[in-house]
């Protein structure tokens, strides 16, 4: 990875630091409210379910399903000029589909070499070091469960 000027997260920003500490270990971690147990993403100042202020972070696994996607044809941020076209994915966590991550389809699985996965298809997280942070890409998970039509609609 050598996209100069590409925006990267601030690892010292306290609200998200546990997430990036997790990806550095190959783990997707999200906060859950200590009071009511409800997971939330992105991490907010209070729990939308009960108003609690204390959160405990834990792994949500590395599996998900494609919720939606866009293939970007025009770079609008520095460092992405040489990347276009690239595909941004919204992935619902298999362990709790209310939690959805914004990520990137693994370039090794992009068209024209591969077809885009379909909405509802199983994906698995890929942990990609870029400078001092580990980003999360997603690739098709051939071993993943086949979704029922009902699940895809939900």
């Amino acid at each position: 990875m050598s996209q100069a000027g590409r925006p990267l997260p601030d690892l010292e920003y306290a609200d998200f630091a546990p997430f990036w500490q997790g990806t550095a270990r190959g783990e997707l971690r999200v906060p859950a409210c200590v009071r009511c147990g409800r997971r939330q993403w992105p991490p907010r100042m209070a729990c939308p379910a009960c108003g609690g202020l204390d959160f405990a972070w834990s792994s949500i696994g590395d599996r998900g399903r494609l919720y939606s996607w866009t293939t970007i044809g025009r770079a609008m941020l520095p460092g992405f000029e040489s990347e276009v076209p690239y595909t941004v994915v919204i992935v619902a966590a298999e362990a709790d589909p209310r939690i959805r991550f914004v990520g990137r389809l693994d370039p090794a699985h992009e068209p024209p070499a591969h077809e885009l996965p379909g909405i509802g298809d199983p994906l698995v997280a890929v942990f990609v070091p870029v400078e001092d942070v580990v980003l999360v890409y997603w690739r098709p998970d051939p071993g993943g469960p086949v979704p029922s039509a009902q699940e895809v609609q939900s």
Binding site: R6, P7, D10, Y13, W69, L77, V88, G103
Partner: peptide, 19 residues
């Protein structure tokens, strides 16, 4: 800036495209 820009998702056209 922290959770979306690193993946190149930053502008209204890109946000609403997934919708």
């Amino acid at each position: 800036t922290q959770l979306e820009h690193p993946y190149g998702w930053s502008r209204p056209a890109q946000w609403y495209a997934v919708m």
